[in-house]
Amino acid sequence: MGDLLRPYRAVLASRIRAQRAYRTSFRADLFGTALVGLTEMAEVIVLFSAANGTLGGLDLMQALLVFGLAELAFSNADMMFGHVDSLAQQVRAGTVDVLYLRPQPLLAQLVTSDISLRRLGRTALAVVVLIWALAANDIDWGPRAVALLALALVCGFAIFCANFVAAGGLQFFLLNAEQVTNAFVYGGRHASTQPATVWVRGITVIFGFVFPMAFCAYLPAMLLLGEPGADWLPAWLGWFAPVAALWAWILALLAWRAGVRHYQGGGG
């Protein structure tokens, strides 16, 4: 097993060393990603403060719990899988061809080809917001709450990662229109921070089930808070977050396989 992972470890370790080598710009980048997270949070705060007590059934602190969960899972996924989203660019630069010359599976190589430690800035902010929200909300602490929290973070991470992989797979087809995938990668991120009660029907279908963003944060948070959830998305569905993550990965791997076949066959 150790031998199997050695190639990936070697690449990742080198990426980490390289990023730490440029300390000043690394610090600026850490600050930058934290700032991006901060403006996303500002949006939530502005909206829920402007609301008359609650918005979509949630008050500000409840909304920040959803935001914190989603933000933490997303920034972790972005750190480890974010570069898969730039596949079209890598195809144009020819770096994908180089991966073909190495004796490991393509996707595993691509995922481990980089890690964006600068996203730790955003992660740190998400941790602070999450802890703040967990403390401020009325949560019945016990094994159930801890299990739900772990479930949300693990499955949320898996779903966001799956979105990046699906985006990579589709970009083999969309070499000049790769921004299409922004709709579900970054649109999906945005959706995961919202209360699902405000969604129009089409969005509920797309981000409740096709790309199961509601399972990343909203549904587990509603279980934690003892809130009922939304139409079509009752809180108890939150226990099915692992099923949602599995579904997201099935979709992602199908997209990836189709993309690779297209690249070797028709495109290029």
């Binding site: 909206l47 402007a50 609301a51 918005l55 979509g56 649109g187 945005h190 959706a191 919202q194 209360p195 009660t197 405000v198 969604w199 129009v200 089409g202 969005i203």
Partner: peptide
């Protein structure tokens, strides 16, 4: 746009 209209129109 759809995501924003959902929450802003609820507001």
């Amino acid at each position: 746009g759809l995501l924003k209209s959902g929450i802003l129109l609820t507001l």
